[in-house]
Design a binder for these strands. Structure first.
Lengths: 139, 139
DNA sequence: TATCTTGCGTGATGATATAACGTGTGCCAT
DNA sequence: ATGGCACACGTTATATCATCACGCAAGATA
């Protein structure tokens, strides 16, 4: 570990901050265009501005993309950036839309080994399950 | 298990057959519009016709959707339809585009348990890894 | 026959994502 | 200081992916 790690995320640009704030407020997944609507008042006008911010935030590990939803969520981890965060699995409730973020080192390990058996080197992982969350499962 | 299971897939409609054949020939993922281009000669003209066929083929388990690619692949399993097929994990090479289909019952089990710990009931699973395949990994 | 279901064909539209271009700003080696 | 570089920005246009809504036709079924 090297010396200076600010605990919070100071180095976001204005657009990146606005986009992250919108996602963070939402406490649920938002599409890029929903985010655009949410920040239009702050002077952002074009999809491209959103997508550029999203790319950066993903790179920083502050948000995740949900491929099966074409949407984005703020990462649930307490510390907003820096510090390696493990590959996450997402549970997406098809009834209420709530998204849970889960981590299981053993699961990831197993996946890595499965891929490695075919000589495949993993660079990124998408792990999403859809179904009913605890609340909705009670019917 | 009930009585009649034809070993092959006889009950596809014309459009469904054309779409499946295109995917099967390709031996790689195709977008819906790429499929459309591939079957335009056979009289198919509109996206809707493709998407309807894709929906049915997915329902039959003959093809898979790759969420992280917004594309589709023919299922690698020998038997084209009927007979329950396990949840699959896909490895997607970012260099050559090749897609591998892997299965690991233990992995799925672990995922199920992880979800169940939160009271989540799984109905569908997306499991895709991106990286370098064995060939491309040799640089 | 009357009705149901299922798939089809079509035109329009909605939703998601990127291309391509130029501008501005900070950095810093020359 | 000035020229080059890297990076984010703003904007227009366009590409790509997916669905809606309508009506028609054929086969099942009662």
């Amino acid at each position: 570990m090297s010396a200076q790690e600010e605990p919070s995320a100071p180095d976001l640009t204005r657009n990146q901050s606005l986009v992250f704030a919108a996602l963070d407020r939402a406490e649920g997944p938002m599409s890029a265009y929903a985010i655009l609507d949410a920040v239009r008042d702050e002077g952002i006008r074009a999809p491209q501005q959103i997508y550029r911010a999203l790319d950066k935030l993903i790179e920083l590990g502050m948000i995740h993309r949900l491929e099966s939803l074409n949407a984005f969520v703020a990462c649930c981890h307490p510390h907003p950036h820096a510090h390696q965060h493990a590959v996450a699995a997402f549970s997406i409730c098809e009834r209420c839309g709530k998204v849970g973020e889960m981590t299981d080192e053993g699961l990831i390990d197993r996946l890595k080994r499965l891929a490695a058996a075919d000589g495949f080197q993993i660079r990124a992982t998408t792990l999403e399950v859809r179904g009913l969350c605890a609340d909705c499962g009670r019917t």
